[in-house]
Design a protein around this nucleic acid. Structure first.
Lengths: 332, 332
DNA sequence: CTGTTAGCGCCTTCAG
DNA sequence: CTGAAGGCGCTAACAG
């Protein structure tokens, strides 16, 4: 079935020039007579010529494509991030591979490995579940790398960030200001940087509000609705007296809402719930979710812009970190 | 920064064999001494050799990568579909390009065009916003094509489907069975096949229930929360007396919920709302959404499995269409 | 079982 | 301003 696609040679023949001239015309390179260029372009159009990016990549050693590695495209945070990043890439004429790791470090490693084989120009890694050392090693062969919410700086390396720590701190402080005293934390997946950051922010917030730290109020969770529900049940069992929960993300918070409802607690009456990210669905659940807002599309497009810049050889510039902003809705 | 990656020649040298032998060993081809193969594989491992898929694609004329074209990755329906498809592709050792068209037919054309240049093996197109003729022409150069929710059959062509028409009919019939008489329809985007199918199902359902068809109760909508909200306001203005709404998808239904709440109508008291798809968020909004269930992950993995099969040259087999199933929750 | 000879379709380098 | 020669890293087809 493989249609015989036409090549630069066909165009060259049709336009009565050499292959080289076709190449130059297609790439808008200087050093071509305007009339010649015109003639070539017309011939290309007529033959519906599409330069093979494969051949181009092999010859030029630049694939003009990128990869995005993330734990779960079905998670709205990553879906929105990816969409924004893809849109920026498209505007720059580049395509992107999406690699789904299903929250699995081994699959993440495999994804990176696979991208290496693709001769990709660069990669964005969001929500890496890899420990620092492994991640560094796994990305060492890439020309350009951007990490989302994980610090990274060096030649061809960069990162874009949301102030997760400060966001968590502000959330806790807000919760405390409304009279909550025993605040639980759904901390997130084991190795995620976001988990560490939120945990630190949780400590900060507690300290800021003069509240004691009680480690038994911290529960790990998988950052999905189900994960949040499970973790909340566990937390409730261990610490039935809590009067507030800050969740790793909005999905987990929604799970918490569900667990709370199932165990007959009223929100925010008996217990307040806050999420993180401000995903569209946060505003839609009932009770609607108070949360720490993040500009996810901006994060995604900044990540891709940075990657493009790094790929062009620009110096790694610090992208300003997003200020967190607490959004109050019905759940607190 | 471009690290000098090692090539088959390096491995060949290290293993004391020819490049050809390396190629055969890496691809698990027959006709190699077990010891030789072992030696090559070890050398490759030691040198961390990753065959260039670019070179391989150029030489073999098979890229082993696919494309997925969809209107909006941030829409959970497509995100979930894509995730399932990507997972199947990964299991088969193929990577996939995600192309986001932002619901724009021109961008869709551009995406297809761009994929052509990538020498891709095949493509899945979900929710195409292209008219039949243009779509056919745009995909004519691809070896394998799978359409989601749009009939397509031929050599190297196939489709996977949900019974949207029957689903809509059942939804309407259910609504009518609960006493609703003036049922509005948020029909969806202009050119989408899903719009036509749901419209037909709407007619079917009305007829089945002995209800008259009133065209003024049908409103087009963009299939997003905002789109659903806008369309519902317009519908309400034109036909304030409606007592039920069937929406193109759950997102639009959620938008409807929002518009209804804003205009002081109670759901399901004053007016019932039904969605389509049964996206995870349908169960989470308040009131929770009655909807027509679809097995989205299955749809995605079937699409990719079919694409893989077509790519292997298998005959286009009909994938059984999913039976619709009405799910009753609080909104009706 | 293994190696040799030719490209795949394009870009790079250097001539004209 | 344009063209010719050479090669990117790999695989297909044939040799040995």
């Amino acid at each position: 079935m493989k249609n015989e696609r036409c090549t630069a040679a066909d165009v060259a023949l049709a336009a009565g020039v050499s292959i080289m001239t076709v190449s130059r015309a297609m790439n808008g390179r200087p050093g071509l007579g305007p009339d010649t260029r015109q003639r070539v372009l017309e011939a290309a159009e007529r033959l519906r010529y599409r330069p093979s990016k494969t051949a181009r990549a092999l010859a030029s050693r630049r694939s003009s494509t990128f990869g995005i590695v993330l734990p779960d495209v079905a998670n709205p945070f990553f879906a929105i991030l990816a969409k924004a990043a893809i849109d920026v890439a498209r505007a720059a004429g580049r395509n992107v591979f999406i690699m789904n790791t299903d929250e699995d470090p081994d699959l993440e490693l495999g994804a990176l490995d696979s991208l290496l084989g693709e001769d990709i120009d660069g990669v964005i890694i969001a929500g890496s579940r890899l420990p620092e050392a492994k991640l560094l090693e796994a990305v060492s062969a890439f020309g350009a790398v951007v990490l989302v919410n994980r610090d990274f700086l060096g030649p061809g390396r960069g990162s874009v960030n949301v102030e997760d720590r400060e966001g968590a701190a502000q959330a806790i402080a807000y919760l405390a200001s409304t009279g909550r005293r025993r605040i639980g934390l759904l901390a997130g997946p084991r190795i995620a940087t976001g988990t560490k950051r939120r945990l630190a922010g949780y400590h900060d917030g507690l300290a800021r509000s003069g509240l004691p730290l009680d480690r038994s109020l911290v529960e790990r969770c998988i950052p999905t609705i189900d994960g949040g529900e499970v973790a909340t049940r566990a937390l409730l069992e261990r610490a039935p007296g809590i009067d507030a929960i800050l969740a790793y993300n909005d999905l987990a918070a929604i799970g918490a809402l569900r667990a709370l409802e199932a165990t007959g607690r009223s929100v925010p009456g008996d217990i307040a719930v806050m999420g993180t990210d401000d995903v569209p669905y946060a505003a839609i659940v009932r009770p609607s979710l108070s949360t720490v807002h993040a500009d996810i599309p901006r994060l995604g497009s900044e990540a891709m812009s940075l990657l493009l810049a790094l790929d062009e050889g620009e110096e790694p510039s610090l992208v300003p970190t997003q200020e967190p902003r607490v959004v109050i809705r019905e759940s607190t």
